[in-house]
């Protein structure tokens, strides 16, 4: 164990959240719950990035009184990366949900086991 586990508690929380989402993907049979698990993983990544950009005692990166020294503001790059992540996550969620709707209209169930069973019975 390294020395910084307690200091990095935010990152630790994000790692645990990530694993919860991943286990959701593995254990849930319901497709909607799988998508929720993937969204939990996304949120964990945002938390991790936000923790990466934070510097204690500094301001948000919005210039006040035209002070542009590095010692005043936190790191703006992870904030921009979180924005990218959110947009992609929204698009991917919408795509997955619409695919789920198509599967539901075809098989009338959201359970992945039942869908694969019906697929086998159809002989595919």
């Amino acid at each position: 164990m390294g020395p910084n586990l307690l200091a990095n508690y935010g990152e630790a929380v994000s790692a645990i959240l990530f694993c919860i989402g991943f286990t959701n993907l593995l254990l849930q049979n319901n497709l909607i719950k799988k998508i929720i698990g993937l969204n939990i993983m996304d949120s964990a990544i945002y938390l991790f990035l936000a923790e990466k950009g934070y510097i204690a005692g500094r301001l948000a990166p919005i210039v006040v009184d035209s002070v542009t020294s590095v010692d005043t503001y936190i790191n703006p790059i992870p904030s921009g990366l979180v924005l990218t992540g959110i947009v992609v996550s929204v698009s991917v969620s919408a795509l997955m949900l619409s695919l789920t709707i198509r599967l539901y209209t075809r098989y009338h169930t959201l359970n992945l086991d039942e869908i694969s069973m019906q697929l086998k019975k159809e002989g595919r």
Binding site: L5, A12, C19, I55
Partner: peptide
């Protein structure tokens, strides 16, 4: 996976520095 990530995180530089 949680244990692995926590061990890795414990070696990262402290948040806020």
């Amino acid at each position: 996976l949680i244990a692995l990530l926590l061990v890795t995180i414990s070696y990262l530089p402290a948040t806020g520095t």
